[in-house]
Write a protein that binds this DNA or RNA. Structure first.
Lengths: 250, 250
DNA sequence: AGAGTTGTTGTCGATTCGACTTGAACCGTG
DNA sequence: CACGGTTCAAGTCGAATCGACAACAACTCT
């Protein structure tokens, strides 16, 4: 039985060592949009077990920080990004056999970043990888521990979060076009949305996106310049954009 | 301070004590319908800290069980009910100050039961209490630790779960009328739904509820006997019943 | 100038939604 | 056994929404 080493903050007569002790880690699934597809950040493990294999960034929770603070610290250490646009806890994993070394309970967080360039600035480039989430889910990248399951749960979570809350704006920059915002939904849900109807629904949701009055300069292929918006307050429960079941456009 | 880089990894000469150790507990928010309102189970704490105060049932995770198994065990110990209709993990709480004794990380589960009678069969009646959730949220019952926040999160979760998945059937018995099912939505969301429109939406969702052909015997106040249904397969993502924003009927 | 591309606005039919009404099936009581 | 009272099922109807597509606007490139 694992015993705790020392914890002298217990009151009189109380012996914490009679309870099983666990190591607690925090893992962060870092999502971003790149090349029109959902990507995630992986780091190469430098130590056993699973040495050399790809894994979700994470580390041990320290005794004097909250779980959220630990997740934020791990994210900052790995990407250099502090205060991300979104950092949500979505699961805890405690299978006794999930870590061959010892009994580790991990709490998983979901981070959404918008600046791809800043990612992987903290670590060596050879040890960080921005990979399409679809590749990971398809098993093209083998992950350490039970991290594949964690990624699956993270993707499931972001998909419903997209519909229930207004986190889509977390994927895009401080100002964005509605086409960019629509691409977030399309890439995450794997469907196509009508641009005209999407626009109508988005601007109808009062206060979610705010027009800035400015426009983009069009790309090299031309086209009418798009209006620029910035994120307003996000809604909770029942947003305007709904996931359709199987409406595949012709 | 423990860092990731300083652990010399030899699989045999591994020393777990160099990592901060935590106690890990599992707390279960047990929800059920009673008297047309959402109720939850509380237990009275027999030990310090917060001795004598009401709390969510829970306990320490054992080293050789998963988190889900621990939640199931705690639920069975407290209510006598094994294999509940629903047991979902919804959050982890790890504030260093959440337990004055020691550093405890707790993983919170949400259980939905349908048989109210079986609840609190495991413990002394004086030490278990089935209380309306609204009373807890309103602060009428003071809870130990950060359990009030946990209950808030549980209720938030069950509200969106009701809309996104088909868990409403977990609240009702093996066979049920549509009025009972509608009462689950109404009590959880605090709104009223039109009975006729509700019926249409429910039966339109293919395979969710299955008519049994039988009927209830009406209550003492008479009324047409309602058809009995049993739960079919639950849907994922985009159910038929949607939470309306502010449609208060006259 | 004209073709191509992209974003915005308009239109229209189909479907859904909310509110209400009607009818069906059962209970009491007299 | 007729008669309200009650509860559930089914019908109606106008309004709102949705999906698909057309039309128009604004830009780039050749």
């Amino acid at each position: 039985m694992v015993t705790k080493s020392d914890n002298s903050q217990a009151p009189e007569g109380y012996d914490p060592s009679q309870f099983p002790a666990f190591a607690v880690t925090v893992d962060v699934v870092i999502l971003t949009m790149a090349a029109g597809a959902l990507h995630m950040l992986l780091v190469r493990r430098g130590e056993a077990p699973f040495k050399g294999m790809w894994a979700i960034p994470g580390g041990f929770k320290r005794p004097n920080e909250t779980l959220h603070e630990a997740a934020r610290r791990e994210l900052a250490e790995e990407t250099g990004v502090d205060v991300p646009t979104l950092l949500t806890q979505f699961g805890a994993y405690g299978d006794p056999k999930r870590d061959p070394r010892m009994n580790v309970v991990t709490v998983a967080y979901l981070a959404v970043l918008r600046e791809v360039g800043a990612i992987a600035a903290g670590t060596d480039a050879a040890d960080a990888l921005l990979v399409p989430v679809a590749d990971v889910l398809r098993g093209k990248v083998e992950l350490a521990f039970d991290h594949l399951q964690i990624v699956r749960d993270a993707v499931d979570r972001v998909r419903v979060e997209l519909e229930v809350t207004g986190i889509a704006t977390a994927f895009v920059g401080p100002t964005f076009t509605l086409a960019e915002l629509r691409a977030v939904y399309e890439a995450t849900w794997g469907i196509e949305l009508d641009a005209a109807n999407f626009r109508r629904s988005v601007v109808a949701e009062d206060g979610w996106v705010i027009p800035t009055g400015r426009r983009t300069q069009p790309g090299p292929s031309g086209g009418r310049p798009a209006e620029l918006y910035r994120a307003g307050r996000a809604w909770k429960n029942g947003g305007p954009i709904h996931r359709v079941k199987a409406t595949e456009r012709k």
